[in-house]
Design a protein around this nucleic acid. Structure first.
Lengths: 358, 358
DNA sequence: TTGTACGATTTATACGTACAAATTAGAGGT
DNA sequence: ACCTCTAATTTGTACGTATAAATCGTACAA
């Protein structure tokens, strides 16, 4: 026997519930009626019903009948969760993004299920599989290694196929049609660089991270600002580093070499506040003063930028707002899966003490 | 019929598994044997087995037999989770604690389910109820408002009654017998104060937070250090603030008043690095130099403490290690519920640039 | 030693019957 | 109009029987 009779009854009953649009409490046909309908024994009918009861489709009341169960009953039982996947979160900006997300979703009674990929695709895959097994209401992702093609796209598709909405932050995947919120990194790089150019700087070192889209976007803005000001960019002034090189990439020797080779450099555009801090720390050791000797602009407006004695001129990320927006978009997608939005956050230059006119 | 026959069979089988200490894969009696044992029909036996299969106790292989199922098999299906409840996490030390926890539990394939109470008992209650509905493997909690008696103890007991281990960090509840990891705040306060006393300071202002146990512990150490050095404590030099007052509590006027009223104050013991930072910022505005004019010791050894030009003398929290220890204890409790441990982390004084001998 | 075939064992599907227990609806009385 | 009792309906428990499908061990052959 290819498919057992009770399986046929089960499929029929499930389809019946959906097609007839039955809701919680609606009554189903009696066992007797089903016996006649399918011309099978009562035992077979009861086997089918028993399975569906165990799977949460139906419930019975002795003497009364069989009824449609509340499909959300077990959802309520398992508690509502939203998944959040980031690369790191010890890092200086993720706590604020996460905090923004938590603020919004916890209002609606959701908890946050966390996963950190450490910029590792294999870990991302493990986490995604793990989260697929939990009955998530939605997922917010900051993708891993965003300049390289991601191998886990089919897993994101698996979420969406199951009707679990996904929202991306900081990047979006080509081919995946869903909401995302990104920052205009090109514009951020542009206004940072333009600020230095407006102040009269002509030879500017740019330090960028090579393995995420933010680095490339800011670099692109760096170039555009030069082009608009009709100032040529010397490619030798552009420095790239990879995530792995991060520690120790900025040191006194290398900085000295850059400045000697650059010839007449007066400004720095640094990938983020941490890089800028490293540069400033080295300069202190080299007895170089900021902004007297060199001007520095960086990105992110982290705590670092405003705690130092010489507060940093930096391009502000709206970290907490970004989290809040992503969470709001996710909640909207839960209610209406077609409510796909794309949000680009415009960054803002905050002028403080590390830049001056020359 | 009081209790159905198949219920009797079910209870027998469940007891049999436990009493005989059967494990995953061990074979059960055949349906025929059970029929003879209970003198019931095969149908009745199958009804009992069917129930136990649905509840995850057993599984069957046609032609082979009935076997004991892995009790964690359905856990694997729903994805393994560990709950973490903190007061805040945007705050400067929680990301590191959380990161330490995540590092350990993710190795074992668990994800972290997050909840932030914002120091609010009602929120804590909602989060706990929500988490009770999710099938957690364990729970790590930093309790809310730890000096006041907590109303949610019965909820923590509910977790433990269900066999879900709970580990507390930063505090432990009287009456709840479970693992916890705390820092020796009294000792922290002691070595911080002793450091200043050893350097010759005699009049020291202490600034403490009134509504958590850390504040009171550090205050106690502050007192002990004075007593051991046989130097009287002037209660007027001890300042208390509540969480709500935090912003703006430290300002130039108030500092000026404290110093004028204090008469001969030369040192500060500050509840944490943030308070110390506020004091230093005000001093800069008042043209007062640290450590020339006043010495300052604080607690936590946060990023703040080492990024400033005048790096802070501070008592180090081992934040990430604390998270790792809590996670390790939780994993141990999962394997062996009797492996209850109490860990007290001994803090360490890190002497940097904000203290000097007078 | 290895592979195959076969029978015995064991679970899976499916039919039928009987009575018990709870609910529901209707008949009948007040 | 309201209550009560009763019969019909509906699900729950339980027995019996038959056949199919998968597995396992053993006997036998290569």
């Amino acid at each position: 026997m290819a498919t057992p009779k009770y399986e046929l009854v089960k499929t029929y009953l499930k389809d019946f519930i959906q097609d007839a649009g039955l809701k919680y409490g609606d009554i189903m046909p009696t066992e007797n009626e089903l016996m006649k309908m399918f011309d099978v024994s009562r035992h077979t009918i009861r086997r089918a019903l028993s399975d569906l009861i165990n799977q949460g489709w139906l419930y019975t009341m002795q003497g009364s009948g069989t009824y449609v169960a509340d499909p959300n009953a077990d959802m309520n039982l398992t508690g509502k969760m939203v998944g959040v996947i980031t690369t790191y979160f010890k890092d200086y900006i993720f706590p604020e993004i996460l905090s923004g997300i938590d603020d919004i979703v916890s209002e609606e009674g959701y908890s946050v299920l966390l996963g950190t990929t450490k910029n590792n695709s294999a870990r991302e895959r493990v986490i995604l599989n793990n989260m697929l097994n939990n009955q998530l209401a939605g997922l917010i992702v900051e993708p891993t290694k965003s300049v390289y093609p991601n191998k886990n796209i089919e897993l994101y598709e698996a979420f969406m196929n199951r009707g679990i909405p996904v929202v991306f932050i900081h990047a979006n995947y080509r081919g995946l049609v869903t909401s995302y919120v990104i920052e205009d990194d090109v514009h951020a790089g542009y206004i940072a660089t333009k600020h230095l150019l407006d102040l009269g700087h002509r030879k500017i070192i740019g330090i960028f991270k090579q393995d995420d889209m933010q680095g490339h976007g800011r670099y692109q803005g760096f170039i555009s600002a030069h082009e608009d000001a009709q100032i040529p960019v010397e490619e030798s002034l552009v420095k790239w580093y990879a995530t792995e090189e991060r520690d120790g990439f900025i040191n006194e020797e290398r900085l000295k070499y850059w400045l000697d080779a650059g010839g007449g450099v007066t400004g720095f555009v640094c990938y983020n506040d941490e890089v800028a801090y490293d540069v400033m720390r080295c300069f202190r050791g080299m007895n170089i003063h900021v902004p007297r000797d060199y001007s520095i602009v960086s990105f992110d407006n982290s705590k670092l930028a405003e705690t130092l004695e010489t507060k940093m001129t930096t391009v502000a990320h709206h970290k907490e707002v970004l989290g809040e927006k992503a969470a709001t978009m996710l909640l909207e997608l839960m209610k209406d899966p077609t409510a796909i939005k794309e949000e680009v956050m415009i960054p803002e230059l905050i002028i403080r003490d590390t830049t001056r006119r020359i």
